[in-house]
């Protein structure tokens, strides 16, 4: 299945000092795949576009912390 977020698993040593994260996530945003933008792509409505940061649905890729424990989790 196509995804804009790819993962890999770095080697986990039995002697790692910190708890291994396991799966590392990285972003491969839509601009990597498009080439020159073709005409007549689907658009957001003007109101939606102003919020999304793009007029074009194909380029919309909101980012959230992939390592977040859950809502309200604070790092302090």
């Amino acid at each position: 299945m196509f995804t804009l977020y790819k993962t890999y698993c770095p080697y986990v040593s039995p002697f790692d000092p910190c708890k291994p994260i396991g799966e590392k996530v990285f972003s491969t945003p839509p601009n990597l795949y498009m080439g020159f933008q073709p005409p007549n792509l689907p658009q957001f409505s003007p109101e939606e576009a102003l919020r999304a940061g793009t007029l074009w649905k194909a380029f919309y890729d909101p980012y959230f912390n992939p390592y977040e424990q859950g809502k309200g989790a604070r790092s302090e």
Binding site: P29, N31, T54, Y60, D61, F64, A73, R74
Partner: peptide, 26 residues
Amino acid sequence: IINLSDDPDLNDGLRYLREREIIHSQ
């Protein structure tokens, strides 16, 4: 910065700015 921040309103603005970087790169 979004990973470091736990402020949902701030992150909303940062997400918008990140989206603009994608468009500029394109």
